[in-house]
């Protein structure tokens, strides 16, 4: 019975938070007067969220889709609860009680408003940024994977290259930005280069090390069955280091995002990083917050896609506790 009570609580919590937030937005007086129209986006979002989440719960309960079980819905609910709590507390402290400086910590209401109003520019910037990210990221990881396997495989190379690589890798790629800007044809190329460098190192390190450490007996088995070096590298080594490879390119993804923002803040004239900078200079912290939200959403999307690809690539692996 305890179990059912727990589940009911978890199911109710996000909705309670949503409606509590709606209540304080509409009923409590604002510290800095906010027009009714400004409140519409956040209210629409909250109400929409409540409806959407109820729908999910319904699907989970009636078991229409097998993959969408109650357990998964409740897990999703838990994550939402965390975010909603943050939104609720933030709104309370930024706009209803004089705790946080409303100028800097713009309340969620204004942030949502900014998201709606500035949507076109946000979208444009997002596309610009993602273009750089995708180019840089894939360049970095492909070079990282290939060089990683080659250096890991040939003992001579490994002995020479790996210790040097270990020393150079920790140098933050950002320090190369001045050179990149001077040597490469345009800012765009420089940004892609820096992003690629960020993605390259963790990929290379992981793949190289994993290749070096592949169980020698797996290689012996392949040789015994008649495979030549090329086949061994493609059909045995590469699949066998996939777990470490994915670990490496995930870190590479995180670093790529960081490099992206830095590169844009330093040299670019478009993109989310640049936009943050310009809005900050104008003291439009509500827009800045909105941009951060957008970046957050992009990261989440990338991570979800990444997890999906990883799960499919590693479907042969037994997961303990799965």
């Amino acid at each position: 019975m305890n179990e059912i009570r727990n589940r009911a609580l978890r199911a109710a919590l996000p909705h309670i938070l949503i409606w509590a937030t709606v209540a304080i937005i509409t009923l409590l007086p604002d510290i800095q007067a906010v027009a009714i129209e400004t409140k519409v986006p956040i209210l629409a979002f909250l109400v929409g969220a409540s409806v959407f989440m109820t729908l999910l719960l319904g699907i989970g309960a009636t078991k229409i889709f097998k993959k969408l079980s109650i357990t998964r819905v409740l897990n999703f609910y838990d994550i939402c609860s965390i975010f909603l709590t943050i939104v609720f507390v933030w709104e309370l402290l930024a706009n209803k009680f004089p705790v946080l400086d409303p100028m800097i910590f713009t309340c969620p209401t204004r942030v949502f408003q900014a998201l709606v109003v500035k949507a076109p520019i946000l979208l444009d910037s997002a596309i610009s940024s993602m273009f750089l990210l995708v180019c840089g990221y894939f360049l970095g990881i492909i070079v990282g994977i290939v060089t990683g396997i080659v250096v890991g495989w040939f003992k001579v190379l490994f002995r020479v290259v790996y210790p040097v690589a270990k020393l150079i890798a920790p140098i933050p790629p950002v320090v190369y930005i001045p050179f990149a800007l001077v040597l490469l044809p345009s800012v765009m190329y420089a940004a892609i280069f820096i992003i690629a460098l960020g993605a390259f190192w963790p990929t290379f390190a992981n793949v190289c090390f994993a290749t070096h450490n592949v169980d020698r007996r797996v290689i012996e088995a392949a040789k015994m069955l008649g495979a030549k070096t090329g086949t061994i590298l493609r059909r045995v080594i590469l699949p066998s280091v996939l777990p470490e490879l994915f670990a490496g390119i995930f870190i590479g993804l995180i670093l790529a995002f960081i490099m992206l923002e830095v590169a844009e803040m330093v040299g670019a004239s478009s993109g989310l990083g640049f936009y943050i900078l310009s809005q900050r200079l104008l003291n439009h912290y509500d827009v800045v917050a909105a941009i951060i939200v957008v970046v957050g959403i992009l990261v989440v999307i990338c991570t979800v896609v990444f997890d999906y690809v990883e799960a499919r690539a590693l479907k042969w692996k037994v997961r303990l506790g799965a």
Binding site: D215, R217, V218, E220, A221, A222, M224, L225, G226, A227, K228, T231, R235, V236, P239, S240, L242, W316, K317
Partner: peptide
């Protein structure tokens, strides 16, 4: 050579494991 702890290729199906030698 048949190994003590099998040392098969877990990323391949049974069929792919068995056909690896002839294919190679």
């Amino acid at each position: 050579y048949v190994f003590q702890d099998m040392v098969l290729f877990p990323w391949m199906t049974v069929h792919q494991n068995a056909s690896f030698g002839p294919k190679s």
